[in-house]
Design a protein around this nucleic acid. Structure first.
Lengths: 240, 240
DNA sequence: ACCTGAACACCGTTCAAGT
DNA sequence: ACCTGAACACCGTTCAAGT
């Protein structure tokens, strides 16, 4: 159905608002609209207004809205590939730092995160990252035969946790008061349980607070990595 | 399903029964439509057609589409709460079984999974499950002070992994051939890397295959749980 | 060559009218 | 009391027309 997006390189004029449209400018504007108004807030008419053009001007540069969104994801993937320099230390910590980079880049545009994550592979446009991760898993001591499984689990945790975090943030911002009310409802039901539930309430408080999830994210990742390192992923006896 | 004793009832559409609308029947039909045509495929007009009624008949029972979707999520949450009987063994294995239950229930309606997961807490309607999980973490040997953090990480992994899995399945089904093409593109780029990439390709193959992610899911979960059990979630020295 | 604006089919929702 | 159908504002997209 969709043709491969045609690349159209063009000299960008010095102007900002007015001037010739380029794919780059459109993508940039689309991301800005998504940041401000969410994924659903990106309509062709809104985008046109943000660009100071008629809504239909975009169709000169992208065949589809889907095509446009693809380009938006591409732009995010390019940012993911710019891995910051990190001190080479324990391979586990390299992997944690890599994951933290993913997390911080994706959370820069939380409303975009679900879109990026719905792609087939996070490494789709970043085979170098995949190679780095594999190398680190190897030097952590993982058996080659276990690495695909471990990568799948780690990727699931990574993307899943981040996307979930991003959608929670979006939801929190969107419903405001009602969010607190829902938490109150859960607390109320907890109190009706027969035994002491102070710890359960602490769990909920932790989840209510906006901060701390970076630490939870890294802690969970570390636990999983060390679990893999020690060969503790199998149920009982090891048989492969 | 035959209806022998039933009086002449008009059959509308393929096997749809007429009769008085109830919230239950509407929710049921909504889930069926979502299963067949995805979240975007659930429109009020489609839903009305599935019920053999005018689209607007639904508004007699739900104030909103959002209200309807809330009821749909509630129905799913009720299924989540029906924990199957499981052999009480190692607490880690109880937690794994609990997570597997979540996964299998959510994957029964993959198109619904993102909706369920976007709620503030998976335990929102299931404080009993939260209590069970906390008790298991305790008897695994976790410090009370670490349990909120561990629960947050585990919940993130659980929901994130499942939702990601569900959306991949949806995407796979939706794009069909193009999905394979994307994998081919990644493979191609991998081959251009300087060193041997057979292991990287194995990672991609693993992710391509539909089966095996249940094992990866449980393996990652086990690794994380044992990592927590051994206190390996902290970066270097333990200081709390 | 690039952009515009009317037009079309579809969406959620309102409202007056039907039974 | 429950359901219907026209109507409204909005959406993605097509197409003929503007510059």
């Amino acid at each position: 159905v969709t043709e491969p997006a045609r690349r159209r390189r063009q000299v960008v004029g010095p102007g900002r608002r007015r001037g010739v449209l380029t794919r780059e400018r459109i993508v940039e504007a689309a991301i800005a609209v998504i940041d401000e108004r969410g994924l659903d807030g990106l309509t062709m008419r809104n985008l046109g207004r943000a660009l100071g053009k008629d809504a239909m001007a975009v169709y000169g540069h992208f065949v589809d809205k889907a095509d446009l969104l693809g380009a938006v994801v591409e732009a995010e993937a390019a940012r993911l590939q710019r891995i910051p320099p990190m001190e080479v230390s324990d391979p586990v910590e390299v992997l944690v730092a890599l994951a933290a980079h993913y997390r911080s880049v994706l959370l820069d545009h939380p409303n975009l995160a679900p879109l990026v994550a719905s792609r087939p592979l996070p490494q789709e446009d970043a085979p170098a990252i995949l190679s780095l991760a594999v190398a680190m898993l190897r030097s952590v001591g993982l058996d080659d035969a276990d690495i695909p499984m471990a990568t799948d689990a780690l990727t699931g945790f990574l993307l899943g946790y981040i996307v979930h975090e991003a959608s929670q943030a979006h939801r929190r911002a969107q419903l405001g008061d009602e969010f607190r009310q829902q938490q109150e409802r859960v607390r109320g039901r907890l109190r009706e349980l027969p035994h002491d539930t102070s710890l359960e309430q602490a769990v909920i408080e932790r989840r209510l607070s906006e901060h701390g999830s970076a630490e939870d994210f890294e802690a969970g990742l570390r636990a999983m990595l060390h679990g893999f390192r020690l060969g503790l992923a199998q149920p009982l006896s090891t048989s492969r």
